[in-house]
Structure formats: structure tokens, C-alpha cells
Design a protein around this nucleic acid. Structure first.
Lengths: 100, 100
DNA sequence: TCATTACGCAACCAAAAAGTTGCATTAATT
DNA sequence: AATTAATGCAACTTTTTGGTTGCGTAATGA
């Protein structure tokens, strides 16, 4: 998941789709300075990371933002931050105890 | 930053350092099934992403958790989630207006 | 002092990732 | 029916990345 967002191109696409509007591959390719195939590959990566969803309509395949994994990433970061905070707390307590 | 956490080995190291205790390179290498040099490289990547800090003490260099960038990542994800939420709101309003 | 421990640097290698090109296919348009 | 627009598939090239090995150096300890 972090790996999927780790590429600047993919992060840009992801960021762009965060407004909720689904977009076709060619639409997304238009203002990316690379081939449609390259964009397609990136979209597949984002999709298999669960960050984006695809469904085909007519002759074009629409990619849309998918919030589930995003929430999971936030939860993980929160958990890490929590561990760090409580470690700080223990350190503070230790220092205070030592001080008395 | 996402790229730095995108590698499983680096994520493991980062996660391990989240308890606040600084650790030396060799300590971190001991229970990683790879060379010390490989671990060193990963630590450098984490450091240049601002996720970890290094300071040398005696003959060993201690790497410690660094919360700043973590907070920034959380802020970004929150912002994206926020955009998504408000997009949902607008859609809901639109549907309701359309419904009346 | 001499061995050992912890590290840095640089070259090297293999595998994966990013991107391209060419061609085939399906759907929409006229 | 013929053309065009949107995509898929596959092979290929080029960088990047993850990892190793070899060697040199600074700090520790006996």
C-alpha cells in the first residue's frame, strides 16, 4: 500500500481521483507526460493495492477512488504514533521518578 | 516518504524503532536476514525521508525514530480523506435535491 | 600493543520497476 | 459498412532498487 503510493505518478493519480469522480484511462493519460500504457500499469498497481476501483462502462474503463485501504493506512500510522507517544510517556515518568 | 515505507524491510525497521529506543546498526542487523550493509542502506533511505534520525556515539551509530514526517503523512491522508468526504456530501446533496 | 568490534565506501550483480512500441480487439459514430 | 476512439496484450529496453562482497578505518578492550 505504501509502495503503491510511493511512486510520484501514482500518488498524483490517486490524489486526482480523491474528488470522487471516476475517470477513464485516456482522460487520466491526457495530462500525464507519459504513454497511456504506462498510466494503465500504474492504475493496475493502485487497483491491486485496493486504493482504486475499476469498472468498465461501454468501451472505456473508469477508475474511481476507493477509501477502504486509505482508512487502514491511517489506522496504522495512528497506531505507530500511539506507540511512540506512550513510549514518551514512560520516559517522562521515568525521568520524574528519577528526579524525586 | 511513502516510498520509504513501501519496502517491507524498511517498514519493519521503522516499526521496530517506534518504541523510541535508539538502536545501533549491528543491533538492527542481528535479526534481519540480510547483511549489515543492506540494513545500512535501508536506514539511510529512512533517514533521508526524515523518518529516522542518526547520531554517532563512540564507534556505533544509533538510529532513532523521528515523528515529524509521520505526522505529516497522517496530515496528508487526513486531507485526502477530507476531500473524499466532502465530495460524498456534495453528491448526497445533489441526489437529495434531485429527489425533491 | 594487538585483536576485535562497529562501521564506511565502492564496485558489482540480479531482479524488479517504469516506460515504450506494435498490434489486436471492442465499442461508438457517421 | 467503414472509420475512429478506448482499450488490452505482449515483447522489449532502460533505470532503479535491493542486496552482496571486499577492503579500509576508527573506536574498544584485553
Amino acid at each position: 500500500m505504501f509502495a503503491a503510493l510511493g511512486d510520484p505518478t501514482r500518488l498524483a493519480i490517486f490524489d486526482r481521483l480523491a474528488d470522487g469522480k471516476p475517470r477513464s484511462i485516456s482522460t487520466l493519460s491526457d495530462d500525464a507526460d507519459m504513454t497511456r500504457q504506462a498510466v494503465t500499469k500504474h492504475l493496475r498497481v493502485l487497483e491491486s493495492a485496493g486504493l482504486v476501483q475499476n469498472h468498465r462502462v461501454g468501451r472505456e474503463s473508469q477508475y474511481a477512488f476507493c477509501p477502504d485501504q486509505l482508512a487502514q493506512a491511517r489506522a496504522y500510522l495512528d497506531q505507530v504514533a500511539g506507540r511512540w507517544e506512550s513510549a514518551l510517556m514512560r520516559l517522562k515518568t521515568f525521568v520524574e521518578d528519577d528526579d524525586s
